[in-house]
């Protein structure tokens, strides 16, 4: 317990985050959410805020590879966990297969839910390369899309599904 920690006061404190494989040091308030920290001081605006209550998934990023709503996490509470955002998914010259499949199947309309949707799908594909349509539905059940891209998201993931080894 560090009750006397002077950094634990109302003002801004220094937070070290591991984001997309890089160590980033930023000044934030305790109340700053991870989503705000990413979009603000870190300049990673690919992560979107649409409901700010964990109800829509537009702010989905990975913590240690698992999708989370970055709007419902405090930046000060992230600790040493690895944060991966949509900007960290593709390499300099190659898209993540999920991103390419989204392009190929037009699993994109207005695009505002898309970064979060991609992050949820890519996490599923990592965990479960042989994912079935119902697995995809469940994996994106926390990602709302008002344009109605779900059928094409399912098609994109169908394209990527690796059949389990016989």
């Amino acid at each position: 317990m560090q009750q006397s920690d002077p950094s634990a006061q109302f003002g801004r404190s220094t937070v070290t985050l591991e984001v997309n494989g890089t160590t980033r040091v930023i000044e934030v308030e305790a109340r700053t959410t991870l989503a705000q920290a990413l979009r603000g001081p870190l300049g990673l605006t690919g992560t979107k805020i649409a409901c700010d209550r964990g109800a829509c998934g537009a702010c989905t990023v990975w913590l240690d590879g698992s999708p989370v709503c970055s709007c419902m996490l405090l930046a000060v509470g992230v600790g040493h966990r690895q944060v991966t955002t949509i900007e960290g998914l593709a390499t300099a010259d190659e898209l993540h297969p999920v991103q390419q499949a989204f392009i190929d199947e037009d699993a994109v309309q207005c695009g505002f839910c898309t970064p979060g949707m991609v992050m949820s799908c890519a996490a599923l594909l990592n965990d479960q390369p042989d994912c079935q349509p119902d697995d995809v539905r469940a994996a994106i059940s926390g990602n709302l899309c008002r344009c109605g891209t779900y059928p094409h998201v399912l098609a994109a993931m169908h394209r990527l599904r690796k059949d389990p080894a016989p």
Partner: peptide
């Protein structure tokens, strides 16, 4: 034809007004 701005949208590069 492939949507021209699809790549920007799937990589988070699209700049919406909120950005």
């Amino acid at each position: 034809a492939t949507r021209l701005d699809a790549r920007d949208k799937v990589t988070g590069a699209s700049r919406f007004t909120v950005d």
